[in-house]
Write a protein that binds this DNA or RNA. Structure first.
Lengths: 330, 330
DNA sequence: TTGTACGCGTTATCAG
DNA sequence: CTGATAACGCGTACAA
C-alpha cells in the first residue's frame, strides 16, 4: 500500500507537506506541489479513507434510507442521487427500512459507526417520525423525500399528492365517468392518505353521491392491485373508471380487467400514479400522474451536499411539479 | 462520542480489556465481560468503523458493481445480496459501471480507498476482463455473476444461457411456428451471444432454412425491443413467433405487436427472458425464461463471505437452474 | 486475567 | 514554505 510517507520519502519532503499538497491547501510551493502530485500519480497513490475519516471526523458518505430498494419506484430516485454524489465525490450507503425505519438500528449504525455526513430518507410512513428529533439533536443534516413537514430546519422534497389525485380523478370525471373507484395505498403512509383525499374531494365537488364512491385498499404492489380490482368488479359492476394510488398496483388492476373480459378504456378507464418507466409499455399504455423521480433524487442530494458544504442552510421545502401524462388507458 | 476509553473508565478497567470483551475474545473474566457489555449498552456505545478499519485493515464492506443499478433486472439480485450481507454484518457499496467497468476508476477507489474486503461483479461485457487479473494479483476475493470463466481461482455464478435460449425457441417450434425471429441483445455481452447461439441451434436442428431466421439487435431496453419488433413485422410479415433476449425488450415488442393490430399469441407468439416481476402482469402475461435472480444475489454473497471467512476456497463455479415459465404469450 | 505501549494513515497545530 | 509531533479510536503483542 502506498502511503503519503512513501511519497514524502521519494519527494524528499515530510508527510505533512504531501498531505497539504494533495489536498490543495495553502502553504506549499507550487513547484513542490506539482512534484508531489506527479510522484503520487506515478506511484498510483490513493488516500486511505479510514485514516482520513478517523482524523477529520467526516466520512464523505451519505446514508440513503428507503422502504425497499427493490421497488421500481426508487430506481430513478437512486439514479438521480448517484449522479450528484459521483459528481461531488460522495459515497452513498443504502439501507432498507422495510415497514418501519425505527424498529431497526440501521440509522444508528449509519450515524454512529459509519459516521455518515448526512442522510436522505424516502417515505412517508406515519409511524416513523421520532427519528427526526434524534437527527436534529445530533445535528446530522438530512433531507426527507415524500414528506412535507413545515417544521423548522427540516428539509423536505415532495409533490402535492392531494392535488395530483384530484387532477387524476377530475380527468376521469371530465371524460364522463360517473362511477369511479379508487384503489388506495396503505394508509400508514401519508401519500396514500392524500391521494385518497384528492380522489374524495374531486368526487364531492362534482356532486357524485356517496354510494358511488368505492375505495379498496392495497399495499402498493401488483398483486394487491389485482385483487382490489377483482373486488371492485364484483362490488360495483357498473364502475367505469378507476384511479389507482400507484402504478405497480395499476399493473395488477389492468390484468384483472383484461381477465374479466373488459376493454380499456372503453369499458373501464384507468389512471395510475408515478409513471414508472414501464407504464409507457402496458397495454394499453397508461395514463398516469408523473412524479419527477429522477429530479427528486437529484435535488435531494444537491440540497444535502450544499448544506454539508455550508452553501445552504437547513429548512428547505421544495414542492416539485407533477404532471398528468395522458396515454391510452383513460 | 462514546469510545472504549469512556467505557473503560466507567468499568474501572483498561481500554484493551473493553476491546476484548466487546469482541468476544478470550482472556476476559466472564463477569467483567458482562459488566462491560452492560455499560456499553447503557452508554449507547457503537464502535467507530473508521478506527477499526484502520487498524484491522478490514473494512467489513463489499463492493458491488453492475452496469446500471436502475435496471429492473438487478433489483432481485441486490435484494438477495442485501439479505445475506445484513445477516452477516457486512455493508454493501454499490457502483454503476455503465458500458465499461474499466474506463472508470471506481474499482480502484473501492479497493484502495474504501478497502472493500471483496467484490461481486455482475455482467458479461466482453471488454471488461483485465480487471480479473488485477483482482487476482491483489488477492481481493470476488464473485462474478453472469460469467462462466473456467479459470482457476475465479468464482462464477451463471445460468446456461444457450440452453435456456434453445429451450425457449424449441418451445415455439413445438407449438408449430415455422418463422421465428429473435430480438438479440447487445453482442458486446456474452449472454447475448449465447442466447443467440441457442436460438440458432434450435432452428438449425429443426431444419428451418436460413432465410427463415431473422435476428434484430437491441440493447436490452424497452425502446429497442419496440423498434426491433417493428422492423421484424416489416421485414418478415409472415413471422409468427419471436424469442426476445430479455424481458425489458419484450415489453417493447408486445407494444409494437399490439399497435400493429396483431393478437398475442394467436397471430404472433412471444417468449422472453428473465422473468422480471412485472412479466406476470403484461398483456398477455409473458411466457419467459426465469432466471433465479434473488438466488444469484444471495449465493454470490454467501460464497464471497465464506471465502472471506476462510470457510471456502476460491474457484467456485456455480451453474444455477433456469426455468421456462409458461404463461399466455406463447 | 488485566494493563501498557504501540501503530494503523491521515490531518492539524505549531514551531522553525 | 516546511517539518516535527500529536492526535483520531481501536486492536494486539507483550509484559505484569
Amino acid at each position: 500500500m502506498v502511503t503519503i510517507k512513501d511519497i514524502a520519502r521519494r519527494a524528499g519532503v515530510s508527510p505533512s507537506v504531501v498531505s497539504r499538497a494533495l489536498n490543495n491547501k495553502y502553504g506549499v510551493k507550487e513547484s513542490t506541489r506539482q512534484l508531489i502530485k506527479n510522484i503520487a500519480r506515478e506511484m498510483n497513490y490513493y488516500p486511505n479513507a479510514a485514516a482520513r475519516r478517523l482524523v477529520t471526523r467526516k466520512s464523505g458518505m451519505i446514508g440513503v434510507m428507503m422502504a425497499d430498494i427493490s421497488e421500481p419506484f426508487y430506481t430513478q430516485i437512486i439514479k438521480g442521487m448517484e449522479y450528484v454524489a459521483s459528481q461531488t465525490g460522495y459515497t452513498l450507503l443504502f439501507s432498507n427500512s422495510y415497514d418501519n425505519l425505527e424498529k431497526t438500528n440501521v440509522l444508528q449504525k449509519m450515524i454512529v459507526t459509519e459516521n455518515v455526513d448526512g442522510l436522505v430518507i424516502v417515505g412517508s410512513n406515519r409511524q416513523d417520525t421520532s427519528f427526526i428529533g434524534m437527527l436534529l439533536e445530533r445535528k446530522i443534516p438530512f433531507v426527507l423525500i415524500e414528506r412535507n413537514f413545515k417544521k423548522d430546519k427540516v428539509n423536505c422534497i415532495w409533490i402535492d399528492n392531494k392535488k395530483a389525485a384530484y387532477t387524476a380523478t377530475k380527468f376521469l370525471l371530465e371524460k364522463g365517468h360517473k362511477k369511479i373507484a379508487h384503489i388506495a395505498g396503505n394508509l400508514q403512509n401519508q401519500v396514500a392518505i392524500e391521494r385518497l383525499a384528492g380522489y374524495t374531494q374531486a368526487l364531492k365537488e362534482s356532486g357524485v353521491p356517496e354510494p358511488n364512491r368505492l375505495v379498496i385498499h392495497g399495499n402498493f404492489v401488483c398483486e394487491d392491485g389485482y385483487r382490489a380490482m377483482q373486488e371492485i368488479l364484483r362490488a360495483q359492476p357498473d364502475c367505469t373508471g378507476v384511479f389507482v394510488a400507484n402504478d405497480s398496483m395499476t399493473y395488477g388492476a389492468l390484468q384483472a380487467i383484461h381477465e374479466a373480459g373488459f376493454a380499456i378504456p372503453q369499458d373501464i378507464a384507468v389512471v395510475g400514479f408515478d409513471d414508472l418507466e414501464f407504464s409507457a409499455f402496458t397495454n394499453p399504455p397508461l395514463t398516469t400522474i408523473r412524479q419527477p423521480r429522477y429530479e427528486m433524487g437529484k435535488k435531494s442530494m444537491e440540497i444535502l451536499i450544499k448544506i454539508l458544504q455550508g452553501e445552504e442552510k437547513n429548512g428547505i421545502n421544495l414542492c416539485l411539479p407533477f404532471e398528468l401524462v395522458i396515454r391510452n388507458s383513460a
